[in-house]
Simulated scan of single mutants.
Amino acid sequence: MNRPISLMLVEDNPEYRAVIRLALKRDGGIELVDEFGTAEIALRTVQDAPLVNRPDILLLDLRLPGMSGLDALPYFKKVVPDAKIIILTQSDQEADVLRAISLGADGYLLKASTVTAIKEGIRTVIEGGAPLDPGVAKFLLKSLQSRLPKVASEKLLSVRELEILSLLGEGMLKKEIAERLGISYPTVDSHVRHIYEKLKVRNAPSAITTAHRLGIFPPDD
């Protein structure tokens, strides 16, 4: 992407909005184009905006006055289907994490994250990755591992696909997975497409959540 990444922030805390605004002002690669305190106003604004003015990324809080971020997420997915949505919240509750990802969130970060981590998460999503707060990723992996029925996993995904799913769960990019496993990027990309097809999902967080629900994950070594 030759132009700056365009970003919309939906956050009701004005002080936190100011922190994000200041951090992004110093970053020429990311441009904060809109910020809102409620999901309702944000939805109306982006719906009325020309396609060329719609953001590449939405940073969406969960705890908002009126419509919550979770309730608004499906509407944002319909109004701006090409935009990536990263949840940025204080909540690390299991129900919030799993519901957000199942509704199509492309990443899940906590407000306790550093500004650097948030900006890295934004770039990770643009590059095709799925940024997860380390604590959230650890929780998801632990939950997946605790629910493994080996027979079911072997029937649905191959050993290599399970291995790649595990690395996706750690928030790794396809190119990083290729380097870790010593295989080519196109090979990893092909495996990821097959994983998505088999699990009937469109992104890595949804694959992780679906695997969680089905009880699919490779056993501990």
Score class of each variant (00 low, 15 high):
Ile183Gln: 05
Leu51Lys: 14
Arg213Asp: 07
Lys175Phe: 13
Leu199Trp: 01
Pro55Cys: 08
Gly135Ser: 12
Ala105Pro: 02
Gln145Val: 06
Leu7Phe: 02
Ile164Ala: 04
Val79Lys: 09
Asp34Tyr: 11
Val151Cys: 02
Ser190Lys: 15
Ala207Ser: 12
Val159Arg: 14
Pro55Gln: 06
Leu73Phe: 07
Ala18Gly: 09
Gln93Phe: 12
Arg213Ile: 14
Ile216Arg: 00
Leu199His: 06
Arg63Ser: 12
Leu168His: 01
Leu162Thr: 05
Glu170Ala: 13
Gly135Val: 12
Pro219Gly: 12
Val46Lys: 02
Ala39Ser: 14
Lys25Ser: 14
Ala49Pro: 03
Val79Asp: 05
Glu176Cys: 04
Arg44Val: 11
Ala100Asn: 05
Pro186His: 10
Gly66Met: 07
Asp27His: 06
Ile126Lys: 08
Glu35Leu: 10
Val46Ser: 04
Pro50Asn: 11
Pro186Gly: 11
Glu94Cys: 04
Lys200Tyr: 08
Ile195Val: 14
Asp27Gln: 11
Ala95Gly: 03
Leu70Met: 09
Asn2Arg: 11
Ala42Ile: 04
Pro65Tyr: 08
Asn203Asp: 09
Lys198Asn: 07
Thr114Ala: 09
Phe217Glu: 00
Ile87Asn: 04
Tyr16Phe: 15
Ser190Glu: 13
Arg202Leu: 12
Ser143Thr: 13
Ser206Ala: 15
Arg202Ala: 14
Val159Cys: 03
Leu32Lys: 01
Leu132Asn: 01
Ala100His: 05
Arg202Gln: 12
Asp61Ser: 09
Ala130Met: 06
Ile122Ala: 02
Asp27Tyr: 05
Ser68Lys: 04
Glu179His: 10
Tyr196Arg: 11
Pro81Asp: 07
Gly66Ala: 10
Gly215Val: 03
Arg44Met: 10
Lys78Cys: 07
Leu214Gly: 02
Lys77Tyr: 00
Ile5His: 02
Thr89Cys: 08
Gly169Ala: 07
Asp34Phe: 09
Leu156Gln: 02
Gly182Ala: 09
Ala137Met: 03
Leu9Ala: 03
Leu140Cys: 06
Leu60Ala: 07
Leu181Arg: 07
Leu98Arg: 11
Lys84Thr: 06
Asp12Met: 08
Ile86Pro: 01
Gly171Tyr: 04
Lys138Asp: 11
Asn13Ser: 14
Pro205Phe: 04
Glu94Ser: 12
Ser91Pro: 03
Pro219Val: 15
Glu11Phe: 10
Ala178Asp: 10
Ile126Asp: 02
Tyr108Met: 03
Arg147Pro: 00
Thr45Ser: 15
Tyr185Met: 12
Leu148Lys: 07
Glu35Pro: 06
Leu7Thr: 01
Ala130Phe: 08
Leu140Glu: 00
Ile86Phe: 05
Ala207Val: 08
Ala211Glu: 00
Val19Cys: 05
Ala211Asn: 04
Ile101Arg: 00
Gln47Glu: 15
Glu35Asp: 15
Arg3Gly: 07
Pro81Lys: 08
Ile118Arg: 00
Val19Met: 13
Pro65Gln: 09
